[in-house]
Design a protein around this nucleic acid. Sequence first.
DNA 1: TGACAATGTTACTGACCGGTACGTATACAC
DNA 2: GTGTATACGTACCGGTCAGTAACATTGTCA
Lengths: 198, 198
Amino acid sequence: MKKAVEAPAERPARAADRIRASASELFYREGIRAVGVDEVVERAGVTKPSLYRSFASKDELAAAYMRDYDLDFWEKFENPGGKSYSDAREHVLAYIRVLSTRAVRKGYRGCGLSNATVEYPARDNPARQVAEAHKKLFRKRLRELASGMGARHPAVLGDALLLLIEGIYSTGQQSEDGPAQSAVTVAKLLIDASVAKG
Amino acid sequence: MKKAVEAPAERPARAADRIRASASELFYREGIRAVGVDEVVERAGVTKPSLYRSFASKDELAAAYMRDYDLDFWEKFENPGGKSYSDAREHVLAYIRVLSTRAVRKGYRGCGLSNATVEYPARDNPARQVAEAHKKLFRKRLRELASGMGARHPAVLGDALLLLIEGIYSTGQQSEDGPAQSAVTVAKLLIDASVAKG
DNA sequence: TGACAATGTTACTGACCGGTACGTATACAC
DNA sequence: GTGTATACGTACCGGTCAGTAACATTGTCA
């Protein structure tokens, strides 16, 4: 036997990676301030010094969480439900459909980036800075898609969609069966009213 | 001389009231978890035992903050800009106008109730419970106003307005000059598209 | 004057927080 | 083997957190 049949590609998983995964889950579910570094390392099955070898501080770990979240977001946004879309209208509607389905379910926690902005009002916080940069790009992307839909005022439709989506993030964690139920209908209304007919 | 010219109506201000005021300001501006009880009492100019004579715990103080915020909110919502409105459409638009003006300014911190929901995901948290109850009522009130506008589907228009407003709260604290700029335009679009013409 | 209520003063607790000094195990190089 | 680098753990630090015990002080009303 060469290498045994077990462990085909499962490397030991670096401590830093385990910590990132653990932090992402805990920070998202419970909030960043609510989770101590001890809890993060315990869940990761490592020890505290391992955390501080890879991350300068808890704030920097939070920033890493933001970057991971950002990456994950764009994957979900650009391929909602695992599919890719060429039509801008269908693209956005698909994202909102998937999102609002999640958002009316129990335990939904909204957008990790928006939540971090609530937890850290100070502009110089590393996590917040990642979140702010993300939101700026997201706004630009939505304007782009609004343009692709043929909106009379792409900036306005882009903003409208952004406000709607952030509204879903927010209300989704305030109650189950919240207004996110109506999100797809509202989005259609918004788009149709913004796109020149004929 | 009777009572001297000074102090016309400024009673000493009960410790509990000073604490409520101090907590409201600090909790709103910096977040509840970010502010310690020591900071609250110091700003109030009182001492810690005074806090715990009037409030059972920090969580209960936070709940009191939520109730104060709730009261303040309804005053602002029902009389936007200090005026009262009989027309539902004008009423909602006036609120959104005032809100979005605040929301594009530096240092805006969104809705204290929504923020508390982000900080405390656990359903049994006292502050969160007040916030959840508030949001339920707010949704109902918006549906009522949508009905007053003559919407074809008041539930949908109510939800649309709620999603929009929560979107303003959220994006307003993510950046200055955010999408809240477009909020009034979007609200008009939404209302006009939802109300039967003719 | 005396009694009561509200508040301040001081000092403390135990738990938890973020962060670190320092020792240890493994693996590969020579 | 011995050196060396990497990756990790044990044990601890000082500070801050929410919350409390015991007592002193004040103002008010009778």
